[in-house]
Amino acid sequence: MDWEQIWKLVALPDNVPIVLLLVLLPFYLWMAFSQAFKNDRLIARLEADPDLRKTHHRTTFPHHPSWAPTVHVWPHLLKREFIAMIIVTAFMIVWSICLDAPLEEPANPNLTMNPSKAPWYFLGLQELLVYFDPWIAGVVLPSIILGGLMAIPYIDTNPLGNGYYTWKQRKFAVGTFLFGFIVLWVVMVVIGTFIRGPGWLWFWPGQTWDHHRVDHEVNYDLHAYFGIEGTWPTFFFGLGFLLALGGITGALTHLFLKKCYPRMLQSMSKLQYIVMMQFWVFQIIVVVKVIARLVFHVKNFWVTPWFNV
């Protein structure tokens, strides 16, 4: 175990946000879920009370049946935000005193650094470059992510959960978001930061980052596993595979939603449903591809003369 290597990565000023993320993310998850569960229990209790059932009441803690369900932004929210602002400012000052900007030597186009890493918040996208063609990982996928984020308010029209934490009332929405955020962003960033060493090779935590490490790893296109050759056979095989994968994912999702959230399905328009399903399937395929590459050494699902997926 190379503790020094671990310490170097953890202590690098560049990586401080990610180290903080690793601590803060579980903390806020715990906080959010514990409040959400508490609120869910409160809601259940209120729902069970025939007197209160029909009245408009506060569904979050601190709770008293006679307290107003909402309070004004000014001053109640703003004064809290102001204190938060002061605390964050103090924290940033301390941070800037303790950690200097991690400047390095002047850039030398003849000698790029190894590993050459993007800013920490882009490392998830950079990590995707391992699995996809650059134009897919760098252009198509970010566009889909942005598009998906923009589409959320139009897909998710459920008014429950506004202003308070809840799990019960928005299981699918919260679950999908956490999947996308943690698996596709946080985990990718963490891999890109702590796992990918010189040559973008996979170094487990504690392994020394050796610039001269020699490794043997060969990936094959999916069709090679099935002994398919030739441009067009592979083209159609890959296309068929992707369509099948998308179809199966979509069908399973549909069955799942139908069984667990029939009301949600009913409330969605056709357009909302199609858009949601598109993004959902894309998200799943990306994860499947990542796993297929890491575990099964599959280079590409779909090989065409112009691009590969």
């Binding site: 204190i83 002061i86 605390i87 400012t89 103090a90 924290f91 000052i93 301390v94 800037s96 005193i97």
Partner: peptide
Amino acid sequence: SVVALLISGAWA
């Protein structure tokens, strides 16, 4: 929090 801000400012 104001005390913290002042201290950090002085430290700076």
